[in-house]
Design a binder for these strands. Structure first.
Lengths: 340, 340
DNA sequence: CACTCCCATGAAAACGTTGCCATAACCCGG
DNA sequence: CCGGGTTATGGCAACGTTTTCATGGGAGTG
């Protein structure tokens, strides 16, 4: 209806008070008579007026916005993590700006292309796997930073212990009696994430502890890679009886190869993933849950706490992982009766 | 390093020019000598200065931000759609604010709680299934609005023809020779989405065209519902030979029930989904692709075009759906040899 | 009843940028 | 050599808030 959106001036006029009073009411500041407070509130409602964060931010120096930087938005993990962050920020009445940097990341100086300085109160990076230098460059924008899915010393981080998670998963397979336990990992030409590295290490450590030598195949991420890797494993002269995949997507690809090859799960091969992807439950895939929603929620709350001064900006928050036992793992053939 | 972020003033001083000139350079406005332009550019870089959208928005009236409103962030679909929107907005140098309204939606007047007015240049709603009244209330904020996943007359909309998609899927099953084709739909206690309704209608229409009476089971959304619905169908005295699920998640749940019941897909029952979920390819599930990334991209671009005045604000954009044939559908038992 | 203190309210100066207008310098043709 | 037009640059007022400070009136105290 109104061609021009209402301003605080309009609310003030309608309520018959001054600008200052309107500002006080709308900010919930003290020192306003209840009667006036109601009158102003009503006037604002009638004009369906909301304050311009632009203008208020200009004077307070706070924007009321938090930037969340993710490499990609498509993979399941990020949507769930964002949901957690979003819920936490909403509690504190902060808006969420999302930047998908994707390929941009490779570009030198990508951090500068983000309009963060003076435009956000804080930055949350999710699975960005920042180098020390990138961290420093982000420091330069002068807003607090929270790292999700990555643990950097002396910097606010929320993460899981990938090493321990993978080691636990491996031990689960070993405990079932498997000795030929293979691992399918991922890496692309240009990127080998810290998380990938840690999971591989965790697997290796657990194998070493059991006196077994590790057996890992690394392919491109996603189900294609998983499928191919599984194919390679199956073509070995003495194939594994158990396979741990770096994450569920890979496990799903491996599962497809197994199904197509007529290899039964878990009868002939036990298969395990990592992440607890939605589809994992459908396929009854044993996996490691890392609760990305909780991680996001914790990261969001930590951000809020840092902004309010309640938390230090070097808090390290390790989120628990949990083994989710389903039907895709079992004792190897010969010993079946013993375990089940 | 610098305790205070640099302002345009600082850049001007360092470059030895006036504020106005810096502003012109940084906006790419004409009328600045090349030499000066370079000098300013360099000064800005050295201070790693970026303009405050807050301040510039205050005077231009444009915020450089677009709000994207989604009911939830967790489901696969939204991440993918957001990715498309994000890419389109980035091309136009617009930032993306994401609001997850979730349960808030039920609340009367939820539209007012979003700080849109004066805080964003446009609003994109994704699968919000807005009522006429909600649309009008969003109109009130006075920024252009683009609806994704919903077609409202005389309003910018980007959507797929759910009816046609479901009808096509049904015909695929009918063409294979099935006559006992059941449908699994979803609805919650408080919500029966337009999309759900349309898909059900499409199925019904295709069945009617073939002279068959529809047979649908409606449960809660997600795999749990799908699993339960499939269970009910299997317990019929004459179970279906083909099942179409409203979306892949439901199909996956149904698939699990089938697998657990020892019913082979597609040998005994053909199963079809809708959406082309990532997991659908792993399970070789025949489905209908609706390319949410492309939808998001188109919606983002439409938003940009509306903002630049290139497109009218009542453009209707119907995105194509595509049948993805995989291994989960086949001719019914008796006729198998004929079709394959 | 007078004086103090406090509380509610209003006025005005910022915040960092853009848009408009003025000005100075320059180039060209007559 | 002069006048008119063009071009580069600077100055200044806005934009819509918050914040600080000033003011007035009412309650409480002696």
């Amino acid at each position: 209806m109104s061609s021009q959106p209402a301003s605080m001036r309009d609310v003030a006029d309608r309520a018959g008070v001054s600008l200052s009073t309107v500002s006080r009411v709308l900010r919930g500041a003290p020192g306003v008579a209840p009667e006036v407070r109601h009158r102003v509130q009503r006037a604002a409602d009638e004009l369906s007026y909301v304050v311009s964060r632009n203008a208020s931010g200009l004077v307070t120096g706070r924007t009321g916005r938090v930037a969340v930087v993710v490499p990609f938005l498509q993979p399941w993990y990020f949507g769930v993590a964002l949901a957690g962050i979003s819920d936490a920020l909403r509690e504190a009445d902060l808006d969420m700006l999302v930047y998908q940097v994707g390929e941009t990341r490779a570009r030198q100086g990508w951090t500068r292309s983000l309009p963060l300085r003076r435009n956000t109160d804080a930055v949350v990076t999710v699975s960005m796997d920042l180098s020390e230098e990138e961290c420093r460059r982000l420091d330069d924008v002068g807003v607090p930073m929270v790292l999700v899915g990555q643990c950097v010393p002396r910097r606010a981080s929320v993460y899981i212990d990938d090493r321990a998670g993978a080691a636990g998963a491996t031990r689960h397979l070993l405990n079932l009696g498997h000795t030929r336990v293979a691992y399918i990992g991922s890496r692309t030409e240009e990127w080998f994430s810290t998380s990938s590295r840690h999971r591989l290490e965790g697997y290796g450590a657990a194998m070493a502890d059991a006196g077994l030598s590790p057996w890992s195949v690394v392919r491109s991420p996603g189900h294609e890679g998983g499928g191919l890797a599984m194919g390679e494993l199956l073509s070995d002269h003495d194939p594994p009886t158990a396979v741990l995949a770096e994450f569920d997507s890979i496990a799903l690809g491996a599962y497809r190869t197994l199904r197509r090859s007529g290899v039964r799960v878990p009868d002939s091969v036990s298969l395990m993933g990592f992440d607890n992807h939605e589809a994992a439950s459908v396929l009854d895939l044993t996996t490691v849950d890392q609760a990305p929603y909780d991680t996001g929620l914790a990261a969001g709350r930590l951000t809020v706490d840092i902004l309010t001064g309640t938390a230090r900006d070097d808090v390290q928050l390790e989120m628990p992982t949990q083994l989710i036992l389903r039907q895709s793992t079992a004792a190897p053939r010969g010993t079946r009766g013993l375990s089940w």
